[in-house]
Design a protein around this nucleic acid. Structure first.
Lengths: 214, 214
DNA sequence: TGTACATCAGTGAACGCGCGTTCACTGATGTAC
DNA sequence: TGTACATCAGTGAACGCGCGTTCACTGATGTAC
């Protein structure tokens, strides 16, 4: 494996170390979480000295911020994909967006956690990362506005309504990931066929939505 | 200060080291978060060898689990206090409980984070801790049931409804603590007098509640 | 009331670990002429 | 096409850090007689 890498790259220089570090970090985080992520381990996996990453990411925080940024970019795309039919079926598309949200979080639980954790001391040092986060929120916000102008959602402050929905969704994801919902759920005898998390979620989302409908 | 402690305790033995460690840990977490909590530092603060805590908490995890447990016990009391008038003013008491929830989380942000983070590998090893968490949820659940039997909330599965409300509240707290709500909020020009987080929260809670009312 | 003894609680030295970061270096690459 | 040279990317040794955990120990405490 090391031989293969030796052959495929020109020799001394890795060629694309920066990207390789990012990819390897994503894999690591997916498997073992952010806490245990270490530059040294990543370097070792890539067959490179432990000090090599330093050139591309002067501080560990820089790496984290970059990971968060790319996470939010993917996340935003997932949301956009979810709500793509919003002009045809606004309500259904809105719920589909919620399901996309949940799916992204479930498929990348540790990355999602990182994105919403406060691992970065001073986020304003990483403006592109901050921006990526805001732009994700704006997808939700614009969907809310669309549904409001279509007369489907109440015409209150769209930001507040977006907060409300985001809070619910984020909270649901976190509790689900912590096993707190599952834990309680498993205590009740399952008479009806067991629903998937996504089914339960879209039901709840719908249920909550009733309070917001115009 | 060290002298004082020397005088107040009998001498060689600390007398109440276990409790002292717990208190000091709470203080530490409040100030600097869980990540940086170290047994050695706590021992140093208490004027005791770094290996002394080991007798009372064989693993660091044991300490964490105990902290989480006491956190949930306090948390539950806060919720109970919030909903104390539920038989007289069910709806108002319910919202008051939500505000109590928010207040607890805001006053103990890092402790709250610890309580809801997955720092414990296998929670079933700490049954009393697990129990304390469930009992907190049950306060919410029983409140939901009360409001359902009083005909104030819809009579769907109370657990699902409790999930819904809990998800919203937990998500709201987390996003608030991460500064994500504030971040977006600060972009809009504040024309109306600035509401406190608690006011906004109880408004949102009410708004969401409309969808759940019978 | 006093003594012997078991138990308990904290000591202090040591182990081994992995981490991020620094720094002078050298090999590789690409560009200008 | 070939050479000189600046720039870039990764090397490898070293620093200093704090951490959790172990272990043989000793001083303190409380109990039985």
């Amino acid at each position: 494996m090391i031989l293969e890498r030796r052959k495929s790259r020109k020799g001394y220089h890795h060629g694309n170390l920066r990207e390789a570090i990012l990819n390897e970090s994503i894999i690591w985080i997916k498997k073992k979480g952010v806490e245990s992520l270490s530059l040294r381990e990543i370097a070792k996996k890539l067959g490179v000295t432990h000090s090599a990453p330093n050139r591309h990411f002067p501080k560990k925080e820089t790496l984290l911020a970059t990971l968060i940024e790319t996470g939010f970019i993917q996340f935003r795309l997932a949301l956009l994909e979810g709500k793509k039919d919003i002009d045809i079926h606004p309500k259904e598309a809105f719920i589909a967006m919620g399901v996309s949200y949940l799916r992204f979080a479930n498929e990348n639980p540790e990355l999602y956690r990182l994105m919403f954790s406060n691992n970065i001391d001073d986020m304003s040092q990483y403006p592109t990362c901050e921006k990526a986060g805001l732009e994700s929120f704006e997808v939700l916000l614009s969907a809310v506005i669309t549904l409001q102008t279509r007369g489907i959602l109440k015409k209150c402050d769209p930001k507040e309504m977006a907060f409300l929905i985001w809070s619910f969704t984020h909270g649901y994801v976190m509790l689900l990931q912590d096993g707190r919902l599952a834990g309680i759920d498993s205590k009740q005898k399952q008479v009806s066929p067991k629903r998937t998390d996504e089914e339960l979620f879209s039901q709840l989302l719908h249920q909550m939505g009733i309070g917001l409908l115009a």
